[in-house]
Computed example of a mutant assay.
Amino acid sequence: MDEEDNLDAFNTISEGEADYNHSKWFGAIFYYLINLGRKPYKYFTNSKFSKRNLWTGYFLKLLLLVLLIYLGIILF
Protein backbone atom coordinates (compact mmCIF):
# COMPACT_ATOMS: atom_id res chain seq x y z
CA MET A 1 0.00 0.00 0.00
CA ASP A 2 1.44 3.33 -1.02
CA GLU A 3 1.39 6.40 1.15
CA GLU A 4 -0.76 8.14 -1.49
CA ASP A 5 -3.44 5.46 -1.17
CA ASN A 6 -3.36 5.84 2.59
CA LEU A 7 -3.88 9.61 2.33
CA ASP A 8 -6.79 9.19 -0.11
CA ALA A 9 -8.59 7.02 2.43
CA PHE A 10 -8.82 10.02 4.76
CA ASN A 11 -9.99 12.41 2.06
CA THR A 12 -13.57 12.55 3.35
CA ILE A 13 -15.85 15.25 4.67
CA SER A 14 -15.52 16.46 8.23
CA GLU A 15 -18.11 16.02 10.95
CA GLY A 16 -19.29 19.61 10.53
CA GLU A 17 -19.79 19.19 6.80
CA ALA A 18 -21.67 15.95 7.38
CA ASP A 19 -23.99 17.64 9.88
CA TYR A 20 -24.52 20.55 7.46
CA ASN A 21 -25.45 18.20 4.62
CA HIS A 22 -27.66 16.09 6.89
CA SER A 23 -29.59 19.14 8.05
CA LYS A 24 -30.13 20.30 4.47
CA TRP A 25 -31.29 16.83 3.48
CA PHE A 26 -33.64 16.58 6.47
CA GLY A 27 -35.14 20.01 5.69
CA ALA A 28 -35.68 19.14 2.02
CA ILE A 29 -37.46 15.91 2.99
CA PHE A 30 -39.66 17.86 5.42
CA TYR A 31 -40.78 20.32 2.74
CA TYR A 32 -41.26 17.51 0.24
CA LEU A 33 -43.58 15.70 2.67
CA ILE A 34 -45.42 18.93 3.53
CA ASN A 35 -46.19 19.37 -0.18
CA LEU A 36 -47.32 15.72 -0.39
CA GLY A 37 -44.95 15.01 -3.27
CA ARG A 38 -46.68 17.39 -5.69
CA LYS A 39 -43.32 18.86 -6.66
CA PRO A 40 -40.31 16.67 -7.37
CA TYR A 41 -37.74 16.19 -4.61
CA LYS A 42 -35.08 17.83 -6.80
CA TYR A 43 -37.05 21.09 -6.59
CA PHE A 44 -36.55 21.27 -2.83
CA THR A 45 -32.84 20.46 -3.02
CA ASN A 46 -32.28 23.46 -5.30
CA SER A 47 -29.56 25.82 -4.08
CA LYS A 48 -32.03 28.68 -3.61
CA PHE A 49 -33.68 26.69 -0.80
CA SER A 50 -30.39 25.68 0.79
CA LYS A 51 -30.52 28.04 3.77
CA ARG A 52 -34.21 27.33 4.42
CA ASN A 53 -33.59 23.58 4.35
CA LEU A 54 -30.57 23.96 6.60
CA TRP A 55 -32.40 25.85 9.35
CA THR A 56 -35.51 23.70 9.10
CA GLY A 57 -33.46 20.51 9.32
CA TYR A 58 -31.44 21.89 12.22
CA PHE A 59 -34.53 22.80 14.24
CA LEU A 60 -36.25 19.50 13.43
CA LYS A 61 -33.21 17.58 14.67
CA LEU A 62 -33.10 19.77 17.79
CA LEU A 63 -36.81 19.18 18.39
CA LEU A 64 -36.34 15.43 17.96
CA LEU A 65 -33.47 15.45 20.46
CA VAL A 66 -35.51 17.39 23.03
CA LEU A 67 -38.45 15.05 22.50
CA LEU A 68 -36.25 11.98 23.03
CA ILE A 69 -34.78 13.45 26.22
CA TYR A 70 -38.25 14.35 27.46
CA LEU A 71 -39.60 10.86 26.77
CA GLY A 72 -36.52 9.35 28.39
CA ILE A 73 -37.13 11.34 31.55
CA ILE A 74 -40.86 10.65 31.62
CA LEU A 75 -40.67 6.92 30.88
CA PHE A 76 -37.71 6.04 33.10
Rank of each mutant, 00 (worst) to 15 (best):
N11S: 12
P40I: 05
T56C: 12
E15Y: 13
D5W: 03
S47V: 08
L7V: 09
L65Q: 03
K24V: 14
N53P: 07
L63C: 07
E17H: 07
W55A: 05
Y70N: 02
G27R: 12
N21R: 14
L65G: 07
K48Q: 13
A18T: 14
T56D: 02
I13W: 06
G16F: 11
L60N: 02
E4H: 03
L36P: 01
Y70G: 12
G37C: 01
Y31Q: 13
L62Q: 13
K24M: 13
N53D: 04
W25L: 12
A28L: 06
K24R: 14
N35H: 10
Y43I: 05
Y32F: 15
F26G: 01
K24A: 07
W55P: 03
Y32W: 15
K48G: 02
L7S: 10
Y41A: 04
N53A: 06
D19C: 09
N35P: 02
L71W: 01
R52Q: 13
K61R: 15
N46R: 13
N46P: 01
D19L: 15
I69F: 08
F26I: 00
T56M: 11
G16R: 11
R38W: 00
F10H: 11
L62R: 14
T56A: 13
I13G: 08
P40V: 04
K51Y: 13
G16D: 15
L71M: 03
A18V: 10
N21P: 00
Y41K: 08
Y43R: 08
K42C: 03
W25M: 13
T12L: 14
L63P: 01
I34T: 07
L33W: 12
F49A: 04
L62W: 10
K61G: 09
L7H: 04
Y43Q: 08
G37A: 04
F44A: 05
T45M: 14
N53C: 11
I73P: 00
G57Y: 05
L63K: 06
A9V: 08
F30N: 00
N46I: 01
N6F: 12
L33G: 05
N21K: 15
D5G: 12
E3S: 09
E3R: 06
D5M: 04
N21I: 10
L75R: 11
L36K: 10
G16Y: 10
Y58D: 05
F49C: 04
G27E: 10
L54I: 05
H22N: 11
Y32G: 02
Y32T: 06
D2Q: 02
K61M: 10
W55T: 10
T45L: 14
R38E: 04
G72D: 02
D19R: 15
Y41E: 00
I29G: 02
H22G: 06
L67H: 00
I74N: 07
F10Y: 15
D19A: 15
S23Y: 11
D8M: 06
L64R: 08
N6R: 15
A9W: 03
L33E: 11
Y43D: 11
N53F: 06
K39P: 02
T45K: 15
A18S: 12
D2S: 09
G72H: 05
K61L: 10
D19K: 15
T12W: 01
W25H: 14
E3Y: 09
L54P: 02
Y20L: 08
W55H: 09
T45D: 06
Y58A: 14
A18C: 06
F26W: 09
D8R: 12
E4P: 01
I29E: 08
K51P: 00
